[in-house]
Amino acid sequence: MSGVLGAFLRRDFREAVTYKFSFVSSLAGMLLSLATFYFVAKLVPPGSPSLGPFGGDYFSFAVVGVAFSGLLGMFQEGLSAVVRSAQLSGTLEALLVTPVPIPVILFGSSLYSLLFQIFRTALHLAVAAAFFGLAFGRVDVAGVAAVGLLTVVCFLSVGVLSASFILVYKTGNPFSWILGTVSGLLGGVVFPVSLLPPWIRWASSLLPVTYALDGMRKSLLASAPFSAVLPDIAALAVFDVLLVPLSLAAFRLAVRKAKKDGTLSHY
């Protein structure tokens, strides 16, 4: 298994280094985003009540939101993106005739992007702390680990649901739209959910990103103890319990349907 995953990593690294300016442009995009939020944050006075639970500093709030929502987006869409890309490039069939199980092909194909996005998120936070004054609190490692683990499982499950949809219907992935676009508005990425009017605030409680960002910010920025993030951990655990079996069943059904219809490698 590790040899197979290593082969996928080597393949994607070898391809990535042939695109010489990709990393440079991605780094430039990150710096521009940080600079933008640095100046926007000057409009928000420190100690705003809605930022209180997250350390009180808008720049830190927004940077953690943007950095982690990018990471979660990759977990959510990485798997379906690799299926779509292999359908379009024509490599899917060649992968599927190998003895490697389809879930391993799927995970292996997206592993490099996922690891690279984790590195990018860490770099984002490190650059923000070193040059723009991102203020970490007393970081609760257990809280970060628990929220992080449950969040990864949750968003990978959504990723498997998306990949199942793409295997059968090829485009128009509704999970990406619902959880990607709506999460940007209602999930508390760049402003606290408490600012939303009550009639719509309930919708944010249905989105896993709300709990993921809430737990991460409290653990990273607000020096909150583990007990303070327990509600977020409980909510994410409920999402995991529902989404893991659902996504695995959907994936099995999707592979079977695509093989029955003869459309496994169609695009």
Partner: peptide, 13 residues
């Protein structure tokens, strides 16, 4: 299997 066309390879490798 030799069933895929030339698109079944990674062109940049």
């Amino acid at each position: 299997c030799a069933i895929g066309d030339e698109r079944s390879f990674y062109w940049r490798l």
